[in-house]
Nucleic acid binder design. Structure first.
Lengths: 234, 234
DNA sequence: GCATATTTGTCCGTATGTATA
DNA sequence: CTATACATACGGACAAATATG
């Protein structure tokens, strides 16, 4: 609508007022803002993202927005259908099952290598547990989910592999899309706060085998809960 | 300035002459052609990819080419530095080491599940072995490398996880960038043709443990060979 | 099933900023 | 330090595909 094309004088159109701290390119910045909205559930899975609408809202050109869409598409947060634009990804039951397949493979192998963990590794685990406690005390269930993601990312990090870290970050971000489909966020997230703490104790002084066995149970339970929440169809 | 708004008649400007058979979006098509050139080594790691030059060569606009670059960037075949454009990825020693870390994790877990393999799974393994023999007989070392990639992708596929399949496809495509750094392609690729055949036999009738042990040795040897070929620096 | 409105895919031209010879 | 080349980003245009009445 705006149509503020005129003013041929030096007008500093566009993003002349950037806050200095954000220096990463307009497309990456737009992608970041969209990612945050998806993460927070302000845009729900299945929602269409109109190019014109969001180019206006984020104050970038359509071309720039399309580059942002590509970024999010590669992170699997949005899907891009030819000539039909992009929409927020909607996870199917098969996606949830596959994600837990990968989590079992990676996380169980990771706790098996707890013997080689550095103090920094253990610090990340401990910090994520504390973060979950704090968020649960405040009733901030979105943050509880974030802390949970951090905890399991810290588990995967025991493998010391950048590529594993990246993959885990991606599939856990995908999984959050399924969190938003849960009817009662509190009931969904609360059990894992205590469970994470118990798991942490097992990892640091229970030994690899005990921790691995517990993690298997943990992941199976979480998968069952998510899959069970799906309606008959997808 | 142009202001060529007129010509309300049907004027078919631009790419009205597309060959009908390629119907996947110009950006995906451009990415495909670039991917193939990188795969074949016609563009070498480290080469800069000028937007203007390649937009002309591939007969697409710069905007479309940039979308193609994003695709390849996420596949880690090219790197994108802000304000410095893109260049073909150059693998470091740390990348090779990390890739083999992931390969050990995934492929060894996969052969451990050979008991649940379907006939189709085994068929893919067998076909990849045959493909390697055939290519080696012709002296087509690029195709030998491709067959080797297919073989290990078929191993990973025993896990039955789309996400694992995708990740493996990606890191094996990355790894091919390192193949191109090998001084003598024949000497590099030849040993694996026979080794793959032996490994295949072990997998189908040697049992999971024997196959897993052999695969560990195989991967360690391959990693050592690639790392050893790197000059002192990166 | 058809005509129309909307949205996407692609291209162009251009201005601005950044890196390098 | 200046000049030049190139990447980033913008806005406008229109054909083609899709959705809608």
């Amino acid at each position: 609508m705006a149509k503020l094309v005129g003013t041929p004088a030096t007008v500093r159109i566009g993003r002349a007022d950037r806050t200095e701290s954000e220096r990463a390119g307009a497309s990456a910045r737009a992608a970041g803002r969209l990612r945050e909205m998806i993460r927070a559930g302000r845009i729900r899975p299945g929602d269409r993202l109109s190019e014109e609408e969001w180019a206006g809202a984020l104050e970038v050109s359509r071309n720039t927005l399309r580059e942002a869409f590509r970024l999010l598409g590669h992170e699997k947060l949005v899907v891009h259908e030819l000539n039909r634009g992009v929409s927020v990804r909607r996870l199917g039951v098969d996606d949830v099952i596959d994600i837990y397949r990968v989590r079992r493979l990676v996380e169980c192998a990771a706790v098996g290598r707890v013997a080689t963990a550095t103090p920094a590794d253990l610090g990340r685990l401990r910090a994520a547990v504390a973060e979950g406690d704090r968020a649960a005390a405040c009733g901030e269930w979105l943050d509880v989910g974030t802390a949970n993601i951090h905890f399991h990312q810290a588990i995967a990090a025991l493998l010391g592999s950048p590529r594993v870290d990246e993959t885990m970050g991606q599939i856990l971000a995908e999984l959050r899309l399924a969190f938003h489909a849960m009817p009662d966020e509190r009931a969904f997230h609360l059990p894992y706060v205590g469970w994470n703490r118990r798991l942490f104790t097992l990892i640091v002084d229970g030994g690899a085998d005990a921790a691995g066995a517990e993690l298997e149970i943990y992941l199976a339970a979480a998968e069952r809960q998510l899959v069970g929440a799906y309606p008959a169809g997808r």
